[in-house]
């Protein structure tokens, strides 16, 4: 399964390099100097960005599902994504000249606050009503989204906001996506604590009985999710549903043991985002459909199916 996935990803990788507005054959991209420049400046960064985003989104989705002990939740639509956008927006309004690092930090901190707020909100919900969690999460995300729109209107930044609300890869060039690597590092960190997170899915009491420092692990995981989400929102914009659909698919195939599942999740996430981006580039060339739009169509459809398949087992 991993091999097939890796082969698929490599194929998409090459395809992604080969497709673009400028008509270059794959060989030219490597052999001619203009081709190399095009590849290094635009196509390679774009492809790398898609893969990194896919990995980060899918892994943070899975981690959040473990933390919330609920399958139907992901950070991007559950407040973290909206909070990150709010952070950037506020930072731009208050400190217009702030360095990208400052904006990034603001986004990450707000995402953290947003995630913690959600955790506090869903914690008292009864586990017998699993669908209540995603409902609360979606509306919570919507409320923060409305705050974002409000601030943007008052600050006369609606135009600016549009770019953050839909995740796009068309603007990715060398030097403008590297923040995603920070997100990748944070995703990698969740893999290091994968075993401990798996224990959490047994329930807090059971995990504590097994000697786990529940508070610390939860805090670390929430921090990682927030950083990943913030980096993606700052560089690309919001990309919904990847964190929801991919982990569910992987859990179906490979079970819930995170150490086994996380690498597959990462792989599948990368494949999904890259494939969606390629589709968006091809379908109406030379115009582009933003990757978030394509994924929203796929993801929302998958979500509806998941919601109503779960019934037979629940």
């Amino acid at each position: 399964m991993r091999l097939a996935g890796a082969a698929l990803l490599s194929g998409l990788w090459l395809l992604s390099l080969a497709i673009g507005a400028a008509d270059q054959s794959l060989a030219d991209l490597f052999l001619t100097p203009e081709g190399r420049a095009l590849m290094l400046e635009s196509r390679l960064p774009r492809t790398v960005a898609a893969v990194l985003a896919g990995v980060g989104l899918a892994m943070s989705g899975q981690v959040m599902q473990v933390l919330a002990r609920n399958r139907f939740i992901e950070p991007m639509t559950a407040g973290a994504g909206q909070s990150a956008a709010l952070g950037v927006l506020l930072c731009t309004l208050v400190l217009p000249g702030a360095a990208i690092g400052v904006k990034m930090a603001a986004a990450a901190l707000c995402a953290l606050a947003g995630s913690l707020g959600l955790m506090a909100l869903i914690r008292p919900l009864p586990p017998t009503q699993p669908l209540l969690v995603p409902l609360v999460a979606l509306v919570y995300g919507g409320v923060i989204g409305a705050v974002v729109t409000f601030v943007a209107y008052q600050g006369n930044m609606m135009q600016f906001l549009g770019t953050w609300l839909t995740g796009e890869l068309s603007g990715v060039l060398r030097g403008r996506y590297e923040l995603l690597w920070i997100g990748a590092v944070a995703s990698g960190a969740t893999y290091l604590i994968a075993d401990r997170l798996s224990l959490l899915s047994l329930g807090e009491d059971a995990a504590r009985a097994l000697g786990l420092n529940v508070g610390l692990v939860t805090a670390a995981a929430v921090a990682a999710i927030s950083v990943v989400t913030a980096m993606i929102v700052v560089t690309l914009g919001a990309i919904p549903f990847v964190g929801l659909v991919v982990p569910n698919l992987v859990a179906r195939l490979a079970g819930d043991n995170l150490r086994r599942a996380l690498p597959l999740t990462a792989l599948a996430g990368a494949i999904l985002v890259l494939a969606a981006d390629i589709l968006g580039r091809v379908i109406r060339a030379p115009y582009e459909v933003p990757v978030a739009t394509t994924i929203a169509v796929i993801g929302a459809t998958a979500f509806v199916v998941m919601l109503n398949r779960g019934r037979t087992r629940a």
């Binding site: 994504g81 909206q82 509306v139 919507g142 923060i144 989204g145 409305a146 974002v148 729109t149």
Partner: peptide, 8 residues
């Protein structure tokens, strides 16, 4: 609807 993130 506000047209933002909000569901409705």
């Amino acid at each position: 609807s506000s047209g933002g993130f909000g569901p409705a």
